[in-house]
Computed example of a mutant assay.
Amino acid sequence: MSDSARLAVRLTPGAAADRIDGWDVDAEGRAVLKVRVRARPVEGEANAALLKLLAKSLGVPKSAVTLQRGGQSRLKMIHIDGLDDGQVRANLTGL
Rank of each mutant, 00 (worst) to 15 (best):
Met1Tyr: 14
Leu50His: 02
Leu92Thr: 02
Val65Ser: 06
Leu83Arg: 04
Leu7Ala: 02
Leu54Asn: 01
Val37Ile: 08
Ala31Cys: 09
Ala31Ile: 07
Arg36Pro: 00
Glu45Arg: 14
Gly71Asn: 05
Gln72Glu: 11
Gly94Trp: 00
Gln68Ile: 03
Arg40Gly: 01
Lys56Ile: 07
Asp81His: 13
Thr12Met: 07
Leu67Arg: 02
Val42Glu: 15
Leu75Ala: 11
His79Phe: 11
Val42Phe: 14
Ala27Asp: 15
Arg89Lys: 14
Met1His: 13
Leu58Trp: 00
Pro41Tyr: 13
Gly29Glu: 05
Glu45Asp: 14
Val60Ala: 03
Ser57His: 00
Val37Arg: 01
Trp23Phe: 14
Val9Trp: 10
Val60Phe: 01
Gly44Met: 08
Arg74Glu: 14
Asn91Gln: 15
Glu28Asp: 15
Leu54Gln: 00
Lys62Cys: 01
Ser73Val: 04
Thr93Leu: 10
Leu67Val: 03
Glu45Gly: 12
Lys52Asn: 11
Arg36Ile: 02
Val35Arg: 00
Ala31Glu: 13
Asp3Trp: 10
Lys56Ser: 11
Val25Phe: 09
Leu51Ser: 08
Met1Ser: 15
Gly22Val: 07
Met77His: 08
Lys34Pro: 00
Ser63His: 10
Gly71Gln: 05
Asn91His: 15
Leu92His: 09
Ala8Asp: 06
Gln87Pro: 03
Ile20Glu: 04
Leu7Cys: 04
Gln68Pro: 00
Ala49Phe: 03
Ala46Val: 03
Val65Thr: 07
Lys76Leu: 03
Leu33Glu: 03
Lys62Pro: 01
Ala55Thr: 00
Arg69Gln: 13
Pro13Thr: 03
Gly94Ser: 08
Gly59Arg: 07
Ala46Asp: 06
Ser73Asp: 15
Leu11Phe: 00
Ala16Pro: 04
Lys76Ile: 01
Glu28Gln: 15
Ser73Asn: 14
Arg30Gly: 10
Gly71Pro: 03
Asp18Lys: 04
Ile78His: 02
Gly29Trp: 01
Gly70Thr: 04
Arg89Trp: 13
Ile78Trp: 04
Gly59Trp: 12
Arg30Leu: 09
Asp3Gln: 14
Leu51Gly: 09
Val35Asp: 05
Leu58Arg: 00
Ile78Gln: 03
Ala39Arg: 10
Gly82Ala: 04
Leu53Thr: 03
Asp26Lys: 10
Leu53Asn: 04
Pro61Cys: 06
Val35Glu: 06
Ala39Glu: 11
Gly86Trp: 12
Gly44Cys: 08
Lys62Gly: 07
Ala48Trp: 00
Pro61Tyr: 06
Ser73Arg: 15
Ala55Asp: 01
Arg40Phe: 09
Leu95Trp: 15
Val88Gln: 10
Ala39Val: 12
Asp3Arg: 14
Asn47Met: 07
Ala16Gly: 10
Val25Pro: 02
Ala39Met: 12
Thr93Tyr: 09
Gly70Arg: 04
Ala16Asn: 09
Ala8Lys: 08
Glu43Trp: 14
Leu67Ala: 03
Ala8Ile: 08
Gly29Arg: 02
Arg10Met: 11
Arg19Cys: 08
Val42Gly: 12
Val35Ala: 07
Pro13Ser: 10
Glu28Arg: 15
Gly22Ile: 05
Leu67Cys: 10
Gly94Asn: 06
Asn47Ser: 12
Ala17Trp: 01
Lys56Asp: 13
Asp26Pro: 09
Met77Asp: 10
Arg30Gln: 13
Asp18Ser: 06
Ala48Val: 02
Gln68Arg: 08
Asp21Arg: 12
Gly82Leu: 02
Leu92Asn: 03
Leu92Tyr: 08
